[in-house]
């Protein structure tokens, strides 16, 4: 089955990203295709490479980056949600004259159209959040 995933909550504060990660891992292991993981609302905070959790805790961002690298996953952060919350890639840094960028490997910033497109093209769009 062709799946898409929507994550609406930030890391550590909420279990949504953990559950989504476990779902995606299990789906891939079962032979399903995950065509996109879209991060919206505070969910975009999963994509900052400045995340530094305590060493004895799971590293949610790095875990996503590794999974993306291994399975060529398309991890998309909503641009409008990112702009509000200080998530910036190199292009956005230049466009908005910021002095830094903070997007982790394997993530990209794009528009909400990517969410709607995922809803159209996937057999199932599975949401994680409240």
């Amino acid at each position: 089955m062709k799946l898409a995933v929507l994550i609406n909550e930030g890391p550590y504060q909420h279990q949504a990203s953990d559950s989504a990660y476990q779902f995606v891992t299990a789906a891939l292991a079962a032979g399903h295709e995950v065509m996109r993981v879209f991060f919206y609302h505070d969910g975009v905070n999963n994509g900052t490479r400045l995340t530094t959790p305590p060493q004895d805790d799971r590293h949610i961002q790095r875990r996503w980056s590794a999974l993306a690298d291994e399975h060529k996953l398309d991890l998309v952060l909503c641009v409008a949600a990112c702009q509000r919350r200080g998530l910036v890639d190199e292009g956005e840094m230049k466009r908005n004259s910021k002095d830094a960028h903070n997007i982790a490997d394997g993530f990209r910033i794009s528009g909400l159209g990517q969410l709607v497109e995922a809803g159209i093209e996937a057999d199932r769009l599975v949401t994680f959040g409240d």
């Binding site: 919206y40 609302h41 509000r84 528009g111 159209g113 709607v116």
Partner: peptide, 19 residues
């Protein structure tokens, strides 16, 4: 919370897809 506003933004962007 910001959910209502960001939901509306999704609806408006989604309109371009003629669904």
């Amino acid at each position: 919370t910001v959910y209502a506003l960001e939901s509306l933004e999704t609806v408006l962007i989604g309109a371009a897809f003629d669904q």
